[in-house]
Amino acid sequence: MMPRKLKVFQTSQGFFDLAIAAPSMKAALEAWGASSNLFHQGFAQESEDDAVIAAAMAKPGIVLRRPVGSSSAFREHAELPSAASLDARPHKEKAKAKKAASAKPSSKRDEKSEREAAAKYAREERQREKQRAKEEAEAAKAREKRNAAIEKAQTAMLQAEAAHEEKADALAKDLEAVQQRVETEEERWRKLKERLEADLRKAKD
């Protein structure tokens, strides 16, 4: 199966312009982490800039960045824009729009380079899928281990609670028996005391 031909898409996000070589708008949106369709909203488009296309095709499937409002090269890691570049952004965007409107369609791309980029994207996509599968398997294993630990702790808690209740019941019975002996002793003493006091009174008489 031939790898899908790649296209280069651009958008802006926060302090950066973003570019990516991907087989579809959907793939680009997923790579950007977009929660809405930026293409339908007019915030993203297919690039016609040869320099941007060359940079993105060299690293297919990788989100490239450059400071927003600048014309610097797209890189995998870019520095934040300066205050001056942010101030100049509206003017540059107007100039870029005029240039795009008057520009002729770009020349035919190097088909060999595009095929190589598409094949590289397909390989890296397979690698990313393997990595995602590995991470999901590790996460599932961690969840299973955590659930086993929770179940073990809950079992230990239930067993300890049952042992405590058993001991508490035994102590309660022992306490009841002791209380009964105390009452019996008090009753015995009361009767003995009454008899002895009666004997004492008789002796005095």
Results as ranks from 00 to 15, higher is better:
residue 35 S to N: 12
residue 67 P to K: 02
residue 49 D to Y: 03
residue 180 Q to W: 12
residue 145 K to M: 05
residue 111 E to H: 05
residue 125 E to Y: 13
residue 96 K to Q: 10
residue 30 E to K: 15
residue 114 E to Q: 10
residue 154 Q to P: 01
residue 35 S to D: 10
residue 96 K to H: 08
residue 169 D to S: 08
residue 65 R to K: 15
residue 93 E to M: 11
residue 191 K to M: 04
residue 69 G to K: 00
residue 120 K to S: 00
residue 28 A to P: 03
residue 101 A to P: 01
residue 28 A to D: 03
residue 27 A to Q: 15
residue 205 D to F: 14
residue 176 E to D: 13
residue 199 D to H: 04
residue 144 E to S: 07
residue 111 E to G: 00
residue 50 D to F: 01
residue 49 D to W: 02
residue 163 A to G: 04
residue 136 E to W: 09
residue 27 A to G: 15
residue 178 V to S: 06
residue 141 K to A: 10
residue 138 E to P: 07
residue 140 A to T: 07
residue 159 Q to T: 04
residue 18 L to W: 14
residue 5 K to Y: 04
residue 42 G to R: 03
residue 60 P to C: 03
residue 116 E to K: 15
residue 113 S to G: 04
residue 70 S to N: 01
residue 86 L to P: 00
residue 92 K to E: 10
residue 3 P to E: 00
residue 13 Q to K: 14
residue 85 S to E: 07
residue 156 A to L: 14
residue 54 A to I: 01
residue 145 K to C: 03
residue 184 T to A: 10
residue 60 P to I: 01
residue 25 M to Y: 06
residue 195 R to N: 14
residue 183 E to S: 05
residue 28 A to L: 10
residue 78 A to Q: 01
residue 94 K to A: 08
residue 119 A to N: 09
residue 44 A to I: 00
residue 139 A to L: 12
residue 142 A to R: 15
residue 34 A to W: 12
residue 104 K to I: 08
residue 105 P to H: 00
residue 192 L to W: 05
residue 199 D to C: 03
residue 58 A to C: 02
residue 102 S to C: 04
residue 102 S to G: 06
residue 188 R to S: 04
residue 200 L to R: 11
residue 10 Q to E: 13
residue 19 A to N: 03
residue 73 A to W: 09
residue 162 A to K: 14
residue 28 A to K: 04
residue 71 S to N: 07
residue 38 L to Y: 08
residue 26 K to A: 11
residue 96 K to N: 10
residue 122 A to W: 08
residue 26 K to M: 10
residue 200 L to F: 11
residue 199 D to F: 05
residue 74 F to E: 00
residue 68 V to N: 00
residue 93 E to W: 08
residue 27 A to Y: 11
residue 118 A to M: 08
residue 80 L to E: 09
residue 176 E to H: 15
residue 51 A to G: 01
residue 204 K to W: 11
residue 73 A to N: 09
residue 82 S to K: 15
residue 16 F to I: 03
residue 66 R to M: 02
residue 189 W to M: 05
residue 15 F to Y: 08
residue 72 S to M: 07
residue 133 A to F: 08
residue 77 H to Q: 11
residue 144 E to T: 06
residue 60 P to M: 02
residue 116 E to N: 12
residue 91 H to R: 06
residue 17 D to H: 07
residue 59 K to R: 13
residue 51 A to E: 13
residue 116 E to Q: 15
residue 30 E to G: 04
residue 131 Q to T: 08
